[in-house]
């Protein structure tokens, strides 16, 4: 128990370091993190929404809104834990400096993941504000649950990307990650259209990734509907988080501290 407390204290110290840096240039970060989802919202909403009108009895823009929240959390966490974390780990050698203090590799990795989750939570929360202002969201009772969900999903995705960063040889590697992994997730996770439109094998295959689950939960919290998939989603995300965090810690330790 004491160990766990020390771990979270250490992680929080590294989280604070990232938060301090973020505060000194938050404007550019915020613009980047919410600019893209807004672009999609208006572009696709006006373009495709004009042709489709309704999905499952819900106007198209409102239907895609929860998926966009999940996408915002995913993108922010992924960027932070790929380019951001890689820069700190490899280019700037920040981790090496920190490891000369009482902090250990595991503290730094946990801090980095929690920071990625924080960025994801911030992006999705800002998007939620915008959606509310546009009248696309008004189920206020859902707000705390949505924020908790995005924090959990952000943690899972940050941990997942941290594993990728731990084995990445260069920045170029992340190009593969984004085009071959993140883009398919954005397309096939039920953000823009119901996955029921896809062949069953394809939509089931994508359920091994966290994103479709996050979208199901968010859509339930936005619009209600079937409760089974959201519950499965919560269980999956909650189960994945500790496993991926553990794996990220192992991989980063292996990279930074050559075994004897």
């Amino acid at each position: 128990m004491n160990n766990l407390k020390a771990r979270f204290t250490g992680a929080f110290r590294f989280w604070q370091r990232n938060a301090d840096v973020f505060r000194s240039h938050y404007l550019s970060s915020v613009v980047g993190n919410i600019g893209e989802p807004l672009l999609y919202l208006f572009g696709l909403g006006a373009g495709i929404g004009g042709m489709i009108e309704k999905v499952d009895g819900i106007p198209y823009l409102q239907w895609i809104a929860p998926g966009m929240m999940a996408a915002a959390a995913m993108n922010a966490a992924a960027f932070e834990c790929t380019f951001g974390a890689y820069t700190r780990m490899v280019e700037q050698k920040v981790y090496e400096g920190v490891l000369a203090t009482p902090l250990e590799v595991e503290d730094v990795v946990l801090g980095e993941i929690l920071w990625g989750a924080t960025k994801g939570l911030m992006s999705s929360a800002i998007l939620l504000l915008v959606l509310s202002a546009l009248g696309l969201f008004d189920r206020w009772a859902s707000v705390p649950f949505l924020l908790i969900e995005m924090a959990l999903f952000g943690t899972v995705f940050a941990a997942l990307t941290m594993c990728v960063t731990a084995v990445s040889k260069s920045y170029e590697f992340f190009n593969y990650f984004f085009t071959l992994f993140l883009t398919p997730l954005l397309v096939f996770s039920g953000i823009w259209f119901p996955v029921a439109r896809l062949p069953a094998w394809l939509s089931s295959f994508f359920l091994i990734f966290p994103t479709p689950h996050a979208v199901n939960i968010a859509r339930y919290l936005f619009h209600g509907g079937g409760v089974i998939m959201p519950i499965i989603g919560i269980l999956c995300l909650a189960a994945c988080a500790p496993v991926l965090i553990w794996l990220a810690m192992r991989l980063v330790r292996r990279r930074l501290i050559p075994a004897p």
Partner: peptide, 18 residues
């Protein structure tokens, strides 16, 4: 391996926090 994202003083204060 100084923290290039921070100022001179912040380097010391952040390190103190660790």
């Amino acid at each position: 391996n100084l923290d290039r994202d921070l100022t001179v003083r912040q380097n010391l204060l952040t390190y103190a926090r660790y």
